[in-house]
Design a protein around this nucleic acid. Structure first.
Lengths: 125, 125
DNA sequence: TTGTTACATAACTATGTGGTTATGAATTTA
DNA sequence: TAAATTCATAACCACATAGTTATGTAACAA
């Protein structure tokens, strides 16, 4: 019903460079927490927090292997975010072209009249 | 040099449903601040703040039309975010398939041995 | 049992975010 | 000129976030 919250969490999770790096690392395969924490100049609890954010966003899931908690990627939320972006990107780019044309026309009109436009009364009660 | 910051700002901007709605509205064409604020149960300064976030992220730009500040979309940051997602989504899905197979194998193995796995000595100095 | 490894959690701090109301500035309209 | 419209900004609040250190817990190893 409300995929809005999912998108919120997904984009918020992606907004942090550490978390994006973790995801990039996990794209190469499963990894434990300490393995994930190693390349970062950051404490282990900080990484655990990031992993919890990613887990709550549904971007990763965690298993059990003795003491280790191997993290693995989950594709579904990414697909949703990708769909959102993709859908609007198309609108964007076409719209962008339209505006480009519109801007050129407006600039041409302004060069003729040297900034003077008729008042546009917007709808008012 | 550091597109990381741009991605940070782009994803953070997309993490808010109000801002996503604003972008969706702008995909239909330019709009003024009050026009953008109208559908939301929120004060005008709140919308102005959201617009500033979107502007700092480079997702929109603003013009001048008398007192109005028409907002228009900018496609470039979206394209960058889209590229990031798209690149990793492919890795993800293939990886996901691999893990799917791997999981099935592990589950089958576990059903036979009823949870008992040989110790895996990880690399240690 | 004792220790070690791998990880989580609690408590705390600093900063960021999303909202508010109040006010000010720029521009058009009367 | 005065008034109305459009928008931004300042000051403030509540809460979230990103990090820290310290400590606890679960599983393996001696």
């Amino acid at each position: 019903m409300t995929p809005t919250t999912h998108l919120d969490a997904t984009f918020a999770a992606l907004a942090d460079p550490t978390r994006r790096a973790i995801l990039a690392r996990l794209a190469l395969g499963e990894a434990s927490v300490t393995e994930l924490a190693e390349p970062f100049a950051m404490s282990q609890p900080a990484i655990s927090k990031h992993l919890k954010v990613l887990e709550l966003a549904g971007l990763i899931s965690r298993g059990r292997d003795a003491q280790r908690r191997p993290c693995r990627l989950e594709a579904a939320p990414l697909a949703a975010a990708n769909e959102w972006l993709e859908a609007y990107r198309q609108l964007w780019e076409t719209r962008f072209e339209n505006l480009d044309v519109l801007l050129q026309e407006m600039q041409a009109a302004e060069q003729q009249s040297t900034r003077r436009k008729p008042p546009k009364p917007r709808k008012k009660p």
